[in-house]
Computed example of a mutant assay.
Amino acid sequence: MKKMPIFAGLTCALALSGCSTLDNMMSDGFSQSELPAAIQVPAGNSVAMIGTVENGNVAWVCAQQDNGRYDWKFAGPSANLMDASGEQLGSYYGPPATWESVDGSKVTGKQLATAPAGEGNIPMQLVKANPAMGQGAMSGVTYIQRINLNGGKAPAGGCTAMAEGRRYISGYTADYVFWKAM
């Protein structure tokens, strides 16, 4: 099932201008106006690239929490980042959350904010990137946004003392927008 963009107005505006892919937004101007304020990238940054995840996975593990109850704990992502033509740009994995380009450069980062992305979906996210490791596409990345989500959530139940240590893999799709300082 193909995901629908959260910023539908932007997609319509792009379609009217002859631009139909996220990659083309870089040259036509990327507007964050329809994204929640909490995950908007500060002024002084511009879109460097956009990677789409079509068949990503989020791993969850059943574990006892500090309060003594059992619940699903985030164990890490695994996904390929693709461009609009279907070519692989890199991968996303963790922990720690790492975005790695096919050229070997990579970044990790610190989550600054999240915003709800709808029932059954992991949240939208804003990450402040750490300095890149290696030279290449990830060099100079300042922020990473996760938008246009579908799936990825932990199950609503099933995590008990009897299930402790059990892993659950949840499929998801998303777009990751990589920003660099202007």
Rank of each mutant, 00 (worst) to 15 (best):
S139E: 14
Y92V: 12
L35E: 02
D175V: 00
S33P: 00
E87N: 15
I6T: 14
Q125H: 00
T108S: 07
Q32A: 06
Y143K: 03
P96N: 13
N80D: 14
V61R: 15
L81K: 05
S170N: 11
A15K: 12
V141S: 01
Q145N: 09
Q64S: 04
D103H: 04
W179R: 07
S91L: 02
K106Y: 12
E34Q: 15
L16K: 11
Q32S: 05
L149P: 01
C19K: 12
I6L: 14
I50P: 06
F74V: 04
N130A: 15
A59N: 09
V41I: 08
L14Q: 14
Y168V: 10
P123K: 11
S85W: 01
V41Q: 10
F74A: 10
K110I: 10
S139Q: 14
P36A: 12
A161W: 01
A75N: 13
R146T: 03
K153I: 08
V58Y: 00
P131Y: 10
Q135I: 07
D23H: 04
Q111A: 05
E164L: 10
F74H: 10
E54L: 10
I39E: 02
N24P: 00
T160D: 09
L126C: 09
K128Y: 03
M82H: 03
G68C: 00
G56M: 07
G56Q: 06
S78N: 15
K110L: 10
A84M: 02
G94T: 12
D66H: 02
C19E: 10
E119S: 15
M162R: 11
K2M: 10
N121V: 03
S170H: 11
T11A: 15
A38H: 02
L10Q: 09
C19L: 06
I39W: 04
M49W: 05
V41W: 09
V47D: 08
P95R: 07
M49R: 02
A181Y: 01
M49C: 00
T160F: 09
G18N: 00
K73W: 03
D83G: 09
G171P: 12
A115N: 01
L10P: 00
S101E: 04
G94E: 12
D71S: 13
A79E: 03
V53H: 09
T11C: 09
L14P: 01
L126A: 06
G136K: 08
E34T: 07
S31E: 05
S85D: 12
A75H: 07
T11F: 14
E100I: 04
P5E: 05
L14Y: 15
N148S: 15
G140K: 01
Q32C: 05
P116F: 03
K3S: 12
G104N: 09
P155C: 04
I122F: 14
P131M: 09
P36K: 11
V141R: 02
T11E: 14
A13T: 05
K110V: 12
L149C: 03
L22A: 15
N148P: 07
G151E: 04
N55M: 07
A154V: 07
F74W: 13
P36R: 12
